[in-house]
């Protein structure tokens, strides 16, 4: 029987990031799809209903929280603890490149071997890295759409993405990306949690993982 010990992995800020990011993504997908296609059509005139305005308001608040979360994660890329820094999980070192391929084989049930590591594996880390990049695109297009006239976001948005319509198109496509990411992320996390006793899911609540104790 292997002996396990508790190891502190995720800092408070990272967990705060995760628990701001995740619910904001959920809210943004639901309200975003509504704004794209307002399916509850109220033909009642002079009513107190502000369905679209309310949905947009929720979307904007969630978008601001989403932006804050992304900025926090960017900070942790460079100033977080050892497991949170970007070079710990990107396939830029020999160790991580090897880990990327072995994780792919392992996830495809082609090998039973896998490397025990406390932080992200290289595959997850790479996916998170690109997700944060896309999140930056998402909040920049969002701010461009929200502040379309004479703001700093207008000039950034117009030079990076072109017209409002082009920004809106990118923003809409990425909405689907985040829905896709959430689904895959939750599945793989549950899958890993079932296969390993490291306590992956609880680690995002309390920050601790379990590792085999050196004997």
């Amino acid at each position: 029987m292997a002996v396990y010990e508790k190891k502190y992995v995720w800092s408070i800020l990272l967990r705060l990031f995760h628990w701001t990011f995740a619910p904001s993504i959920f809210t943004l997908i639901v309200t975003g799809l509504y704004i794209h296609w307002p399916w509850t059509n109220t033909w009642l005139e002079g009513s107190h209903q502000f369905t679209m305005a309310t949905m947009r308001w929720i979307h904007f608040i969630a978008g601001m929280l989403f932006t804050c979360a992304v900025l926090a994660r960017l900070y942790l890329w460079f100033f977080g603890n050892k497991y949170e820094r970007v070079w710990d999980f990107l396939p830029i070192t020999g160790r991580n490149i090897k880990n990327l391929f072995s994780t792919l084989l392992y996830y495809a049930y082609l090998t039973d071997h896998h490397e025990e590591r406390l932080g992200h594996n290289a595959l997850a880390g790479t996916a998170y890295f690109f997700t944060i990049l896309l999140a930056i695109v998402q909040f920049l297009t969002g701010l461009y759409l929200l502040y379309p006239e004479g703001s700093i976001f207008t000039s950034i948005g117009a030079s990076l993405f072109g017209t409002q319509q082009e920004a809106r198109f990118i923003h809409y496509i990425l909405n689907w990306y985040f829905a896709w990411f959430a689904m895959v992320h939750i599945y793989i996390v549950v899958w890993n949690d079932i296969k390993h006793p490291e306590g992956l899911i609880s680690s995002i609540f309390d920050g601790f993982k379990f590792a085999k104790k050196e004997q």
Binding site: N41, T42, W43, M52, T163, Q164, Q165
Partner: peptide, 30 residues
């Protein structure tokens, strides 16, 4: 803002002068 849209050209909402967002109006991008 109040969620009143013409669903298609010629329907009741269209005749009542509701918002043309759902029939593809590009006002929000122009």
């Amino acid at each position: 803002d109040e969620g009143r849209y013409a669903e298609q050209f010629g329907d009741v909402g269209h005749r009542l002068g509701f918002c043309l967002y759902k029939v593809g109006c590009k006002g929000p991008e122009t």
